[in-house]
Each structure stands twice: as structure tokens, then as C-alpha cells.
Design a protein around this nucleic acid. Sequence first.
DNA 1: AAATATAGTAAGGATGGCTGACTTTACAGC
DNA 2: GCTGTAAAGTCAGCCATCCTTACTATATTT
Lengths: 141, 141
Amino acid sequence: MDDFKSIGTHLKSLLDDLVINLHTQLNNAGFPEIRPSHGYIFQYINEEGSRITELAGHAKITKQSMSALVYQLEDWGYLKRAADSRDKRGVLFFLTDKGISLQNMSRQINYDFERQWESRLGIANYQKFRENLQKLCISLK
Amino acid sequence: MDDFKSIGTHLKSLLDDLVINLHTQLNNAGFPEIRPSHGYIFQYINEEGSRITELAGHAKITKQSMSALVYQLEDWGYLKRAADSRDKRGVLFFLTDKGISLQNMSRQINYDFERQWESRLGIANYQKFRENLQKLCISLK
DNA sequence: AAATATAGTAAGGATGGCTGACTTTACAGC
DNA sequence: GCTGTAAAGTCAGCCATCCTTACTATATTT
């Protein structure tokens, strides 16, 4: 019945489920201002400090767009900035304690959600699915 | 090295590759005005005619958003409208010949792109991946 | 006949992207 | 040391895609 659906539709459907679950739970947990696009930052930010350009590159969006997202998170207390001692042009951003706890909570929420998928496919099958997905992404680099 | 990446990142990466490929090729083939969100319509439209509300429901966007997309495709000659004889409130939309040929081209482009993924994973493995993906979507309904 | 539901439109706002032009700083070659 | 180029960010302004709220017109149910 759903056979006519394309792979694109399936991928989008799965991704949407994940994202909606995450942000519904974050909202309920008292983080209503965090939106999907802020996820780029929590995904890619580095303990040694990350710069706008670097984050934008990973997220594949412009520096300007990334800049706006980062400044919001800074305003809300999830990030703090520091001058880059080796390059006066750059600004380094770090997660605050609040940022780290949000990052951990997000990971836990997604981890728990994946366990639901796992129980649908069975552990071995889900493992296989994960591996195949990862292979497709890596080889596409 | 990419191990830290979450499943969400992987899904998004794969989906982006597919969508970028499709729209790059459509662009080159002389359909520059078609954007990713128009895909909803080509994906879900019915031979017997589809209505705004019905399409919006499948795409999980509002009637207003779908309305705007449908009117664009109508302006560009991909869709034609007809009154619904059984319900004067409704409007039925159909693909024109131009719309059908775009739909066919899109399917072919995505089909060809999937063959690249298939050759990366091997046919049996890719088949398995496809099945698992589909299972996850169906059971989520 | 009245109440309610449904199809679609209208207006306006939030979000998430983009481009182009700009400043400041870094670096490489002469 | 100059000079030219590149790189990090910012600012301004644009567009697309979604949303909410409110509305009209038609159907349906009671």
C-alpha cells in the first residue's frame, strides 16, 4: 500500500519522526526556545572551541546563517565566546554547563528513540541498517 | 572518524544528496523553477484528481502552504484544475502532459541515483536496507 | 431549519536559508 | 617593508516555507 512511496519520502518521514520527537521532549523538559536548526551546533561543536566558519562548513550553511544561530544560543546561555589567541579575526565558541546538559539530554532522547526502531527491526537487523546507512554517507564524501 | 555522527545527521545527509541531485538534474534539463517542496505534489497527486486538503494531508503541511505550491505549478503549466462535480467547495487538480513528463523524469533521475547507492552496498545489502527503511516507516504510522 | 463540519482563501508572522557588500586581520611574494 | 589576496565575521536585505487566526461558502447531520 505504501509501495509507491519513494526512498526520499521514507528518509524524510524517518528524519521527521526523530526531529519531532526530540523537540517535543526538549520542549516538555523546559527548553522551548531550542529549534531544529540549533542542532547543527550541538552536533558539531568542539570541546576546544569552534568557530563560526567551521560550524557553518559542517552544517553546510552560510557563515551568516550560522552566525545568527550561534548568537541566539549565546543570548540564551548555551554558548560562551572567547577570543582566539592565535587569530584575531576568529571567535571561539564553547558550550556552557547549560549547553552541555542540553547536549546530553538530546543524545539521551535520540538514543531512547532509536531503541524503539531497534525493537521493531530486531537488534541484528537494526545494527545492519545503521551500518548500511553509515556506509552510504561515508562513501559519499 | 565519522563515528560521532548521529543517525539524524546521516539521514539528513543522505536525503540532501538525493534532493540536490534531483534538482540539479531537473535544472539542467530545463525545469529551473521546480523546487524541492513541489515534490510533495508530484509524489502524491492522483490520476483521478487531487484536492488541496488531500495533498496537504499527505505532505503534512497546511492547506495554505499547499495552496501556494499548487497555484505555482498551475501557473507554470504542470497542473490543471477542474471543478469537483460532487462538491462545489472543492477543486480537483490533475497533472498536465508537462506535469507527467516531469514526474517521469524525476522518477528516472532518482532511480538512477539509487543505483549508485546500490552498487556501493551491493545489491542484496541495498535491498535489505530498503526493506528495513520501509518497515520503520510503515510501523510508525 | 439549525448546527456543525469541511474546502478553500486571506493576512500576517516566525524561521531558516540565501546573496552581496563590507571591515578587519593574516599571510605569501617580492 | 609593501602589496595583493584570502579568510573570519558582520550587516542589510531578500526569498521560500512553514505557521496561526480568521474568514467565506458549501455539505452534511440531526
